[in-house]
Design a binder for these strands. Structure first.
Lengths: 155, 155
DNA sequence: TATATTTACATCGCACGCGATTTAATCTTA
DNA sequence: TAAGATTAAATCGCGTGCGATGTAAATATA
């Protein structure tokens, strides 16, 4: 790089565009999720429960890379909306099991349309399908690497 | 896809890994930025000011895809730390001009090490350099497309 | 088995993000 | 030029994220 300060430029960074893209995609979900009465992080929790069923706060957290300081208040809001129920595990009283209510399970049907709408909104001539697939592949690899890193850093 | 609900699965989504990767990279910055007394969004504002100098809240916002509801409180915090100053533009009394203080300008020297450290921490055998470059390219394209989309949606 | 350590979740405080609204200045246009 | 529309910040309220700490249950270890 000719300019010694160039490394400090936004354009040369990976993290800023990740940050920007994440916020912008979340914004695309907002109006669709509002119809279901969900925020984006709440939707992610519902996805986990729709896919994997009852599980502990910890298990949800490992899938979403979130901890109880974020999840506990969020889960309480989902509980207040009547979408989930929470109970202490009898096998291990430290754990809290999160389960879908009937209402929460039924919401899945309404959510089916969301991925289609989102995919359509990403449709743009500047992005070819193989490019997006390759992008997704690298993105998953990145999350995996960063996830491992976070695990290491805990110790 | 064989399973009709597969579209709802986390793994098939683009937005979740963006969300996860963004949060995880921000976490990597945290300890480095703590030494400068900055949060990641505050660091982004400082980057903009280091690179482009005095400008309005609006101008900072268009570079970072943020608006005054987020920036005003953040800028007040930077002002309290003595890193920036804010004043109404005399040309247009609606605008607020944000400028680095001497202290704020000097902080740039300390920040020079950060990109190097971050780049080193992304160093992993699973990610080749051309793969990362391609990834970055698509990511920028994505931000551009989403940015245009956000502009359109405002109207 | 008594004690120390670890684990799971909850709580607290602070800094975002952002939709919605307000206020003041500037621009448009009839 | 007066009235309405637009624009730039600021303000408000709510829901995250997350570091730090607390509490209780389970596990490890002496």
């Amino acid at each position: 790089m000719s300019n010694p300060a160039a490394a400090l430029y936004l354009e040369n960074q990976l993290c800023f565009p990740l940050y920007a893209a994440s916020r912008m995609t979340t914004k695309i979900y907002a109006p669709l999720l509002k119809a279901l009465g969900l925020t984006y992080p709440q939707y992610l929790v519902m996805l986990v429960l729709w896919q994997h069923g009852e599980q502990t706060v910890n298990a949800i957290g490992s899938r979403l890379y979130l901890e109880s300081n974020t999840l506990t208040p969020l889960l309480k809001r989902l509980e207040q909306k009547g979408l989930i129920s929470r109970r202490r595990s009898s096998k291990d009283e430290r754990s809290v099991l999160v389960q879908l209510t009937e209402t929460g399970a039924q919401l899945k049907a309404k959510a089916q349309e969301i991925p289609k709408t989102i995919l359509a909104s990403f449709n743009d001539s500047r992005l070819t399908e193989p490019e997006v697939l390759q992008f997704q592949k690298t993105l998953f690899k990145l999350v995996e690497i960063l996830g491992e890193r976070a695990e290491r850093d805990k110790e």
